[in-house]
């Protein structure tokens, strides 16, 4: 079965996000009342798995072992059949 996982990685709430802070300043220069920005990234992975639970296990490994650093980042997964 083919699956497509959209994996979102973002800095943990307690970790500073200097890029987000810079974006706050830039957006406010447009005259917008922006209070806070958190940045992250989106990684779209197409892969094969036996079934949905196997696919979930695979995305968990992807997130933990490579795509997010558990010291500073969290990740979440949206899974769809491909």
């Amino acid at each position: 079965m083919k699956y497509v996982a959209t994996i979102h990685v973002r800095p943990k709430a307690e970790v500073r996000d200097p890029q987000g802070e810079a974006i706050v300043g830039a957006l406010n220069s447009l005259g917008l009342g922006v209070a806070n920005v958190r940045t992250g990234k989106e990684i779209v992975v197409t892969f094969d798995a036996a079934d949905e639970s196997a696919a979930r296990r695979a995305t968990d490994i992807m997130g933990r072992e490579l795509l997010a650093n558990p010291v500073v980042e969290d990740f979440s997964v949206e899974l769809a059949a491909g």
Partner: peptide
């Protein structure tokens, strides 16, 4: 231990 992240001043 720990991690190295983007410099505070970017």
């Amino acid at each position: 231990p720990g991690a190295l992240t983007r410099n505070a001043g970017l």
